[in-house]
Design a protein around this nucleic acid. Structure first.
Lengths: 219, 219
DNA sequence: CATGACGAATTTGGATCCAATATACAGTTG
DNA sequence: CAACTGTATATTGGATCCAAATTCGTCATG
C-alpha cells in the first residue's frame, strides 16, 4: 500500500541524480524555469525540492540570485570524512552491542549484492549496494538523528563515488574489506568493527583526495 | 549594506519563535492557511520556510497530511546531547589550537553579556548570550559543516532553555562554569576545555531530563 | 579605453487560483 | 450497534500570474 510520489519528491529525486551524474555541475546556477520545463512541472515543487537540497548542503542559495550546485573543496571533503569518522564510529559501536540475527542478515544480503556488482563491474549497483551495506551496519544503533546526518554526509560525496568505483582495484578492495567487516559484525566485536571501518574510510578518502587533485579543481 | 529580509526569511523567524515559545506546541498540526493569514503572507513562502524547518528536524512532514511540530522524546534529547558531545568536543579541540586574540575577545564579550543577563534575571538575554558564548568557542575551528549541524542540535532543544534559565541556581552555575571555561580557553588548554565543556553539557542535560520527567510527557 | 548611468530583458519571490487528497460525517446495512 | 459506504468539507499540492530584484547590454562621459 505505497503512495504515488508527489511532484516535489519526483523533482528531488531527479535533482539528486542530475547532481551525482554531473549533468548539473558544481557552481552552475540552477535556472528554475529551464529545469521545471525540462521535468514538465511548475516552479513551485522545484523550489521546495531545492529548499531540501539547500538544507542538506547540496546546493547553495542566495536570495534574489537563486540556487547553484555546491562545490566540494578539498577542505570540505576532509571535513565530511572527519565528521563521518566521529559519527559512524559512535553508531557502529552502539549498533555492535545490539545486532540481532535479522540485522546481520541484512548486512550479509547487502554484501552479496556488493560482490556481484564488483564482479560484474556494475557501477550503479556497487554504489547502492555499498550504501545498503554500511547503513545496515549503522541502523541497529537506533539513533535516527545521527543516521539522518550521516546520510547527508554520504550524499555530499556521492558525485565522487562513481569515479571511485570505476577502478577494478578499488572495487576489489572494498569487497575484500567488507568481508572482514562482516566477520567482526558476526562476532559483535565493536572494537574490531570500528577499527576496520575507520581504515575502510581512510582508503576511500585517500582515493578521493587523489581524484580531486587530478581534477585540478582548486579548493 | 544589509538586505531587507525576504518574506520566507521573516516567516522562518516567526515560526522559530512560535515553536520556542510553545505558541506552537509539539505534535500540533500546522494549518498553513491559518498561519499564513496570521502573518499576513501567502502560503508559498510559509511552505518554503517549513521545508527548511523539516530538514532541521524542527517539524515533521507527511505528504498530503501536512506539517506538525516535532516532539522531543527523552531518547531524542539524549541523542541530541550525545551528538553534541561528539561534535562539540571535536570543534573545541580543533579551535583551541587556533584561538587568536580576536577569537578570545569575542568569547569574553559574550561572557560579559551572560553575566549581566544572569544578574538581571533576563531569560532571553541569557539564551542569546549563552549561545554566542559557546559558538564563539567553536567557530575558530573552521569547520562550517560541523557548526551547521551543531546549530540545528541547539535549535532542537531551544524550547527547553527558557525553563532551564528560569532557575537562579542554574543561571549562577552557568555563569560560574563559563568563567572556568574562559580560563582554559585563554591558556589554549584543549584538554581542560573539552573536559569543562563536557561537564557543562552534562549538567544541562541532567536538568533538562528532570524537566522532561516533570512534564510527564511520555517518550 | 575604462567607467558609470540608464533601461530592457531575464530571473527570482510571492499571491492567487484550481486540482488532488485526506478527513469528518451522515446514512445504510449486516 | 458496529462496520462500511458514499458524500461533503477541509486541507494540502501544484500551476499560473504578477511584482520585485538582479543582470546584462547600451550609451554617454571622463
Amino acid at each position: 500500500m505505497s503512495r504515488p510520489p508527489t511532484t516535489q519528491e519526483f523533482v528531488l529525486d531527479e535533482l539528486r541524480k542530475a547532481i551525482v551524474s554531473r549533468r548539473l555541475s558544481p557552481r552552475q546556477p540552477i535556472r528554475q524555469d529551464a529545469i521545471a520545463h525540462q521535468l514538465g512541472v511548475s516552479r513551485v515543487p522545484l523550489r521546495e525540492a531545492l529548499k531540501t537540497l539547500e538544507a542538506e548542503g547540496q546546493v547553495v542559495y542566495e536570495p534574489h540570485r537563486g540556487y547553484s550546485v555546491a562545490e566540494l573543496s578539498l577542505s570540505d571533503l576532509l571535513e565530511v570524512y572527519r565528521l563521518r569518522d566521529l559519527l559512524e564510529s559512535e553508531a557502529a559501536t552502539v549498533a555492535a552491542r545490539k545486532f540481532t540475527d535479522t540485522d546481520l542478515a541484512r548486512v550479509l544480503d547487502a554484501q552479496r549484492d556488493v560482490e556481484s556488482a564488483a564482479d560484474g563491474s556494475d557501477l550503479v549497483g556497487m554504489i547502492t549496494a555499498n550504501r545498503r551495506f554500511h547503513f545496515a551496519l549503522l541502523e541497529p544503533a537506533g539513533m535516527p538523528r545521527l543516521l539522518r546526518i550521516v546520510r547527508t554526509l554520504w550524499d555530499a560525496t556521492d558525485a565522487y563515488r562513481a569515479v571511485y568505483y570505476n577502478s577494478d582495484v578499488n572495487r576489489a578492495r572494498v569487497r575484500d574489506e567488507h568481508e572482514r567487516i562482516v566477520q567482526a559484525a558476526k562476532q559483535r566485536d565493536a572494537e574490531a568493527l570500528t577499527t576496520l571501518l575507520d581504515t575502510h574510510r581512510r582508503h576511500a578518502v585517500d582515493a578521493l583526495r587523489a581524484t580531486l587533485d587530478a581534477d585540478g579543481s582548486p579548493g
